[in-house]
Amino acid sequence: MKGHKEKKSAAALKAAFPQTIPILAGFLFLGITYGIYMNASGFSFIYPMIMSLVIFGGSLEFVAVQMLLSVFAPLQTLLMSVMIQARHLFYGIAMLDKFKGTGWKKPYLIFGMCDESFSINCSAKIPEGVDKGWFMLWVTALNQLYWFSGATIGGLLGSLITFNTEGLDFVMTAMFVVIFLDQWLKERRHYTALIGVSVSAACLLIFGADSFMVPTMACILCLLTVFRKPIAKSLEEGSDDPK
């Protein structure tokens, strides 16, 4: 029995790893940047190391450095965290079904559901015969390993790293563009994709880069609710994807 189980997880790792390579590049780079930033702000490498493990959400961890450097404000810290991370509420709703039946892996899958792990787990075509739960577990764990390694290396080496990596962070943008494009090509009608892009862009223009996500989410929810009939119909018509 044990041998069978090991085979199952090994096959899933083999299928999962290639999917995470862009994140390997992106997270090592961003993690190192984050570690260097903490180091330069006067914190020991223990801080980025622990924060990458318990928070595991890139944008908030950068903001948390500022919080640690200012006056102790617990309520504000909690509220800020919920606001910055609010988009994860959407991820949970989208993954309610996919995480069903994953057993003991489920709490970790939810714990480690950052933007990148969500995007891969939500969009990847898991090969025939590969265990879904193990696949998603590996994607999540590998991503966290990359982020943790980057943050710790950056915290340890600090400003020793000097080669020109300007622009490497574009790897994350490129990956999201590809995932968005794949989703686009799968659908016959693009109602929700268009809602996502146009609402976000409009809210970004109106509310600015620091506070556009919560209004964006509220507007997306409103539009999806108001236009439920046509959208639900287009979803039922299904995709061109033979699944």
Partner: peptide, 26 residues
Amino acid sequence: TPKYVQYLGKALPAAIFGMLVVYCLK
């Protein structure tokens, strides 16, 4: 799961991916 939430679960991913592209470019 309520029907409305099931619907959101199916409708949201495409919107989220669009939102994430804009988020990266903010």
